[in-house]
Nucleic acid binder design. Structure first.
Lengths: 208, 208
DNA sequence: GGAAGTTAATCAATCGTTTGATTAATTTTG
DNA sequence: CAAAATTAATCAAACGATTGATTAACTTCC
């Protein structure tokens, strides 16, 4: 017989991620997820135990791929500035390649419910911050960077990228661009990277 | 008898804003709002027509107070840099004085439901961006600022502040500070302002 | 006394989840 | 190999609980 077979489980995950991003976790019903994925409602609980189980699986999958990328940079024999530029490039690329998830993550971060999820995100972000912190601190200690408020610089780098992703297209820098259009996204991505690299170069190395 | 008298309406608004911020709009039930405010459930519909009516009223009130503050600055006879510094100070002060609302606003901005609300926030933000845009553009034109990607600089300013408000205390710059503690909040506020003023000064006026 | 404010009780709708049954594929057995 | 037994996947229907909203009666106040 013709058996649809392949991965209704995956279909549920993908539909749920899309819906959670668009309308939020509590704003999405299991019936919507079922309809969107083409699966029966019961399959959600069959595979994931609960609606929250779906959410947790999505976040875990994403966060796993999240953590495993930037580490090597800090071992290269390049200047602190070059390291920082590489991190900016990598970080921007990764976030703009997953804007939907990034929105979801930040939304979750601004809520007090589901503390378990909150902690997970916190830890993932914390690691990235630590990496950047070390690069900048090293640069300051060896005299190649100005003395700056390191944690604030980090907030600036991350905040800029997040702002581009979350704030509405019409409001934000690239007025007529659309992050859902791959071509526009590429342009925005390069613009963000260029800006942040220029900004950090000037701010960290300009003679006062 | 005891007449509670004093503004059950206001109590509902305040309770709802608190809850909406903590657990989101769909994550908050009218029964929770009633309990938290000490009002009967029916009072919500009596005064605001619906749950969404409460939400809209909260947002409208806030946005109204939002728009009416920064305008004067651009008329002062001061340098572009001083104007920008004033805007940064005013903007940071306002956002950190209303962190709960700011979280709510940003969450709403990352959702696709309630487009009416989305547009309202978009317009409010757009006006602030336009103000900053003009100040920086003027500075570039009269030669006092370097040529920069203006909209990206704006994203950096706004993104940095938002990042401080939304990202978790333990992750974000001021590691052991708590935005709910008034004393800590004051310290963070001044640190953000100092950082952004320093950053913009260096980036916009440093000789290359 | 009548308008405004407040209440408990109730409403239909929807929520996430569970159920019992059915189908299709796989494994075991004789 | 094929019949029997077992497992996994899927489904429609229903569950109890909760949702936002409404009702109608009661109280308070001018």
């Amino acid at each position: 017989m013709k058996t649809e077979k392949i991965d209704k489980k995956q279909a549920i995950l993908e539909a749920a991620e899309k819906l959670f991003c668009e309308t939020g976790y509590e704003g999405t019903s299991t019936r919507q997820i079922a309809k969107e994925s083409g699966a029966n409602m019961a399959m959600i609980n069959y595979y994931f135990g609960s609606k929250e189980g779906v959410f947790i699986e999505i976040m875990n999958n994403r966060i796993a791929g999240f953590a495993s990328q930037l580490r090597i940079i800090n071992e290269d024999k390049i200047s602190s500035l070059e390291k920082l530029h590489k991190v900016i490039e990598g970080y921007t690329n990764r976030i703009l390649a997953n804007t939907a998830f990034h929105k979801m993550m930040h939304r979750e971060l601004s809520l007090t419910q589901r503390p378990e999820m909150y902690d997970k995100i916190k830890d993932a972000m914390g690691q990235n911050m630590l990496l950047i912190d070390r690069i900048i601190t090293d640069g300051i200690e060896d005299g190649s960077f100005n003395k700056v408020d390191v944690r604030m610089v980090i907030a600036t780098i991350m905040g800029t990228i997040t702002n581009i992703v979350i704030a509405p297209n019409k409001v934000v820098p690239c007025s007529n661009f659309d992050l859902n259009n791959p071509k526009d996204k590429k342009i925005i991505k390069e613009r963000v990277i260029a800006h942040l690299q220029d900004l950090t170069t000037v701010y960290l190395t300009a003679k006062k």
